[in-house]
Design a protein around this nucleic acid. Structure first.
Lengths: 117, 117
DNA sequence: CAGGATCCTGGATGATACTG
DNA sequence: CAGTATCATCCAGGATCCTG
C-alpha cells in the first residue's frame, strides 16, 4: 500500500475520529511485557494449561502470568476453562476475537522480517 | 486467514525462533503513550513542525513529545530536519521504513473497527 | 496445580521553569 | 520556536510467601 492509497482509505476515518483512531486501543490491548508471547503460544498450541504456559514463558512469575491472562480474558481475546478435578486443571485458548488477530500478527511479522536484523 | 493457514505460514517461523518472534519488537517499538498518535498525525500530514504536533496532541507536554520523537527517530521511523532560521524551524516526517508500517496500521484498523464499539 | 496477597522498586510519565 | 533541565509522581512488573 502506498502512502497516498493509505490516506484515501484510512485518512478520513482517522480525521473524523478526532484523535480516537481505531488503532490505538488495539495496541494498548497488546501492551504489557508478556501478552504477545502468550497469544503466540496459544496460536501455536491451544488449549494450554497454566503450568504449560509458565514453562514456555519462563522466567515469568506467577503474578505476571496471572495478571496478563486476566487482562487478555477481560478483553475477550482468550478463554479460560476450569475443570474441577483433583488436581485442579485450567485450560486457556484463543477466542474467535483473538484468532481474528492473526492477520494483524502476519502483517506485523512481514514488516518485522523486512526491517529487523 | 484461518487459524490453520496461519500456523502453516507463521508457525514454523515462530517455533524456530525460540520465543524471539519478529512481532514482539515491532509492538515494543510502537509502545508508549504517544508514539502511535504521532505516527498517525504524520500519516495524515507530513512534514509537521514541533509546535504543530504539540497542538494536535494537546495535552501532551514538551518532555513527552520530545522523548517520543527522539525514540521514533532512533528507530528510523521518522525523520527530523532542522532549518536554522530565525525563529528556529524543525520539521518531522515519516521515513520509508515508517511509511511501510501503513499496511500494519490498516490491518489493525480493520480488526479495531470490527471489534471496538 | 493454579493461582492469591503483599510489599517493593525502577523506569516511564508529568509539571514547571528556563534557554539557544 | 523548539526544545532542555530538574524534580516529582505513579504504576507495571518482580520477589516472596501463602492457599483452596
Amino acid at each position: 500500500m502506498t502512502y497516498e492509497e493509505f490516506k484515501e482509505k484510512v485518512g478520513s476515518v482517522i480525521l473524523t475520529d478526532e484523535g480516537n483512531c481505531p488503532v490505538t486501543p488495539v495496541v494498548q490491548m497488546l501492551q504489557g511485557k508478556w501478552k504477545l508471547q502468550i497469544l503466540y503460544e496459544l496460536c501455536i498450541k491451544s488449549p494450554m494449561r497454566f503450568g504449560e504456559l509458565k514453562k514456555m514463558l519462563k522466567p515469568i512469575t506467577n503474578t505476571a502470568l496471572t495478571n496478563a491472562l486476566k487482562e487478555l480474558e477481560a478483553d475477550d481475546l482468550i478463554q479460560r476453562i476450569q475443570y474441577n478435578e483433583m488436581p485442579l486443571r485450567v485450560e486457556y485458548s484463543l477466542t474467535l476475537k483473538g484468532q481474528d488477530l492473526l492477520p494483524v500478527f502476519y502483517s506485523i511479522m512481514q514488516w518485522g522480517t523486512k526491517y529487523i536484523p
